[in-house]
Every structure is written in C-alpha cells, then in structure tokens.
Design a protein around this nucleic acid. Structure first.
Lengths: 219, 219
DNA sequence: AATTAGTTTGACCAATTGATCAGATCGTTT
DNA sequence: AAACGATCTGATCAATTGGTCAAACTAATT
C-alpha cells in the first residue's frame, strides 16, 4: 500500500504499474470467461483446471499463479453472477405502475438469458446441487427478491392487480425467463432453429409478458 | 435362447433361473438409482464410478460386471427418463376439453417434479450440456410434444381458447413445472421451508394451473 | 550494470480416474 | 462329486486429477 503511494507520483499517461494491473485484470477476465464456459457445460467437479487453462490460453501452473484453487475460482464466479443480477430486481423506485415494472423485469431477465446463457447455467447448476457454495452469499439476493414479492403483494392489497400468490408469481417469472438460458438446446430443437441462427427473443418477450400480465388481470 | 427354452420346462413356483434374473434386475435398479442421485448433483463427468458403486453397495469391479461403462449407464438412464415421460404428453384421446387437458398435464408434470426431482435434474443437466447423448433418442419425445402443440393450435383455430403462441405456451408450462424439480433448493429458500419439511404442492398446482388457464382465457 | 518485482516454465507430486483381468467363490445342475 | 455358469475379488493398468516448486525469464527501476 505504502509502496504504491510513494512510487506512483510521476504519471506519464499510463504508468508501468497501471499496465501490470490492467494486464492482470485482462488475464483474470479471460480465466473467468473460460471457467464459466467449462463450468456451465461440465459442472464444477467435471471441469479440470487443465481445460480452464487451455481455454484461457494459459498453462496449468500459470493458471494457479492467478487463482488459488478451482473451488475458489468457482466461488468468485458465483458471486460475480449474483453481482450482475443486482439490477434485476423488482422495485418501485421508478414510480411506475405494476404493468410497466413487470414488463421491465421480464425484459431484463430475458436479456440476461440471451446475452449470458452460460453464466445463467452455472447458477442453475449450483442450485441443483443444493447451493452448497452459494449458501453464504445469496442472502442479499433472497432479501431483494422478498422485497419484490412484498411489492407485488401490495399491488394485490391495493386492488391494482388480481389476487395472485405473489411469491409463486415472482418465481414463475424467474422460471420461465431462466428457461431460455438453461434449455437453449431444447428451445432451439422445438423451434426448429438451425445451428448458428438466433432465437426470436422479441416473440418470446411478447408472449412471456402477455402470459404474466393476463394472469394478474393487466392485459 | 435355446438353452433357456429347453431347461425351463419344470416350474416349481420360481425357478433358479428366474431368481438369478430377478436378482440381476434388482442390482441394476439399485445401480440406476445410485447413478441418478450422483449424476443429478455432480453431473456425468463429475461423477466417479467409485461413488456410484459405493452408493449402490457394490465394489467398483462388481459395478463393471453389470454395466459396460459410465457413459453407457448414463445413456441408459437418460433413455429410461424419457420412457417415464411417455405418459406426460398432451393428447386429445381422452375426449376432454382444453381446460381439463391443461389441468391434467400440469398435475402430472408437477407430480413428476415432486416424486422424482433427481431424474428431472439429470435431464436438465443433459440439455444444458447441449444434449450430446440425448440427441439420438429424443426424436419421439420431440414429435409427441409437437403434436401437443398442434392440438393447442387447433383449440386456437376453433376459438376454444384465446389466440396464444401454442409452442411457447407449451414450453412455458414445461418450464414452470420443471422449475420445481431443478430449483428445489431455491424454492425452499424462498418459501422459508425448513430442512425435511415438504413443499406445499397443492398450493403450487393451484397457482400454476391458474396462471396458464387465465392466460388463454379459460378462467 | 545491478537489482527488483512480476511472471512463466518444466518437472514433479500423491491421489484418483475409468476400466481390466485372472483367479477365487458361489449355488445349481448333472 | 464333478462340472457348470454366474458372480465376486484383489491386484493392477495407464491416464488424469488438483496443485506445488525451484529455477528461469522478463521488463522496468535504481
């Protein structure tokens, strides 16, 4: 700490120290990306550090220079995914009505499934295992979801939407949107989509939104 | 074949040969059960034959006496799961109306998630991997689902239900019901259910049914 | 030119992996 | 009692696992 402060006085555009830090960041990002890819398809225990290293363009000892252990890396990635889901919660701070909030939630969650399906699958895998690693970390996530459920409940109490079970309603939105990440292969097969072609997420978003809005009497 | 026929003439209650066959069946069933448990939580590649053997109460060489290889066992189990899902399809042979058929599908699928969550998860895992093994086997399954979709489409055409996207409607029913198997840990956490306690599947069935019936104007 | 911190490398480790095999053991039939 | 097929066992295999280590290398600082 003191070293950094004492030596970083001169600042010609980008110091050598900064370059090193930046490089480290880039390599760590590559490791995370490679690991997510592997974890998503092979699971934690089925993934070898070897394969992570290879995918990230590193050797195995090189990988271990940047990470402590496979389990450590896995935990980091899980926390990172939860972090990215921060913005994904239902809240009333925007001042919008139930319809718009539900629409926005479905849109954002579907966008995550579309753009980061692998990360979604790592999460699914962890839950399916009984969430042994996530256990210590997802309390805030659960709390945030709970407050979303409370918001939905308040809509029911105020007669803004039909009387539905708010917890199940929320979970079902989560389930359907998550489906498009976890069951990508099944969705493609059912839709008859060729390799390389894109799933029509506009169609999906329209239908999913309609499903949930109608069920609570908003459409 | 000829041996069996020639020697099986005398039949005192249960012949020795039958006993052997029965024993084999029982052991194979134990192996399948143990393997499903392991595959569901650790994935195929993360599961060791050792752990399967141990859980089934066998030694490793003993296990290999009954199965050819781990991949072989895995494929058998996947096919077996598809087999059990045979009865799970939407069809009009009962002569019932859309409402009853949808209700019955959700009930049956939820019952499967409740009673065999592990098997469900093995399936999910395979799909998340891109269905490399299932690929050769699930054509009938896909066809059956497609005919279910066609049935739903016919309801729309005949004006029996609201104009929904039949394929997505079907997939969403699948997604929500599957959720209760794959995300058991998450569901329990959100519902605040203690270890050992049961999830209230009546409440779930009621809400899921209502969700889909309302969305197609049947409730 | 020497020092330094950061990084990379090849060799190496004990443990486990999926799988095999010859020989031992078992209960049954002849 | 001999022979039989079915089953089980301990030893063993090459390959891979997650991870370590000292030594070498690199580039910037002194």
């Amino acid at each position: 700490m003191s070293k950094v402060l004492s030596e970083d006085n001169n600042d010609p555009e980008l110091s050598a120290r900064d370059k090193i830090v930046e490089r480290r960041k880039a390599i760590l990002a590559a490791i995370h990306e490679a690991a997510i890819e592997e974890f998503a398809t092979r699971g934690v225990e089925g993934t070898s550090t070897q394969s992570i290293a290879r995918r990230a363009g590193l050797t195995k000892p090189q990988l271990h220079y940047y990470i402590a252990s496979k389990e450590d890396l896995y935990e980091d990635i899980l926390v990172q995914i939860l972090e990215e889901w921060r913005e994904l919660f239902i809240d009333a701070t925007t001042g919008e009505g139930p319809g718009e909030i539900i629409r926005a939630y479905i849109r954002k969650k579907l966008e995550f499934s579309r753009s980061k399906p692998k990360a979604s699958r790592v999460f699914t895998n962890e839950i399916a295992r009984g969430a042994p690693v996530l256990g210590k970390h997802w309390a805030p996530h659960v709390d945030a979801t709970r407050s979303g459920v409370a918001l939905i409940q308040s809509w029911v109490d105020e007669g803004k939407i039909r009387p539905i079970d708010p917890l199940l309603f929320h979970m079902h939105m989560w389930a359907v949107t998550q489906h498009y990440a976890d069951f990508d292969a099944q969705v493609r097969r059912m839709m008859g989509i060729e390799e390389g072609q894109e799933i029509d997420f506009d169609r999906v978003e329209k239908e999913v939104t309609s499903l949930f809005l109608r069920s609570c009497g908003l459409e």
